[in-house]
């Protein structure tokens, strides 16, 4: 039992630290985005003339990846499969941190496996594009490949636990519920699980300091979140106001 106690403690620490870095990191980034003023109206026109229209535009960008669809069907397809798959997979993981399983968790439960297929297919498609399309290869840094590899590894180890090397899911749930009340419960000593959990913690840590901020960033993008009403309404940044004094 000694080894698994040590790993349980280590992973408990790792997850506290990762959660803290994720939450604080994202909050700091969002505060920075929110604080920086947009000095001029620059929505990509034609743009909505009402706030409702703007919300609808952002909704379409988030839910449908509308601009990407106009832009490139292959990236859209792979990107969409990946994100949709990931969304369902992430939602499904809520069952590890809630006592009672919410009704919608039950609802998506059967789709979990398909979702992981979609996620993997999408990720591999994106990775292949990155290697094979000359233009995309040109703009890629090592981190861009590694990010995809990381996500594939996370999804891969997760699927391996479903299909190849099952782990004691009840115990995993016990471990995470324990963390919520600052208790360290035993963690099954499965290499696959430990690798999976370590990679996920890694993803949480790099989230706020990497391009993964694109999700929240979208909502701060002035070309997408501004109303077309500049003739009717002045739009003065605080630093610009000083020029008028």
């Amino acid at each position: 039992m000694g080894g698994s106690d040590v790993s349980a403690t280590l992973f408990a620490l790792l997850y506290y630290v990762a959660t803290l870095l994720l939450v604080v990191g994202v909050a700091m980034k969002l505060r920075r985005y929110a604080k920086a003023p947009a000095p001029l109206k620059i929505p990509t026109m034609p743009a909505p003339r009402t706030m409702k229209g703007v919300y609808f535009r952002l909704l379409r960008e988030t839910v449908l990846f509308e601009s990407l669809f106009k832009s490139n069907k292959w990236i859209w397809l792979f990107g969409y499969l990946f994100h949709l798959g990931m969304l369902v997979v992430v939602l499904r993981h809520f069952r590890y941190v809630t006592y009672d399983i919410w009704w919608w968790l039950e609802l998506i439960q059967p789709f979990g496996i398909y979702a992981s297929y979609l996620m993997i297919i999408g990720l591999i498609g994106l990775l292949v594009r990155r290697f094979t399309v000359e233009r995309v290869r040109y703009i890629s840094s090592p981190s861009d490949y590694l990010m995809l590899v990381l996500l594939i590894a996370i999804a891969g180890t997760g699927m391996a636990m479903t299909f190849v090397q099952p782990v004691d899911i009840i115990a995993v749930k016990g471990f995470f519920l324990g963390l919520l009340r600052f208790q360290i419960n035993p963690l099954p000593n499965s290499p696959m699980l430990l690798v999976h959990l370590a990679l996920v913690a890694g993803l949480m840590i790099i989230f706020p300091i990497s391009k993964l901020m694109h999700g929240p960033g979208l909502f701060f993008s002035p070309t997408r979140n501004q109303i077309d009403n500049s003739r009717e309404k002045r739009h003065l940044a605080p630093w610009a106001k000083k020029l008028e004094e």
């Binding site: 985005y33 620059i42 990155r130 861009d144 701060f220």
Partner: peptide, 14 residues
């Protein structure tokens, strides 16, 4: 804000 957000959020999707 545009400058800040755009420098941060590009995912190099191509």
């Amino acid at each position: 804000r545009a400058f800040q957000v755009y420098l941060d959020t590009c995912v190099k999707c191509g």
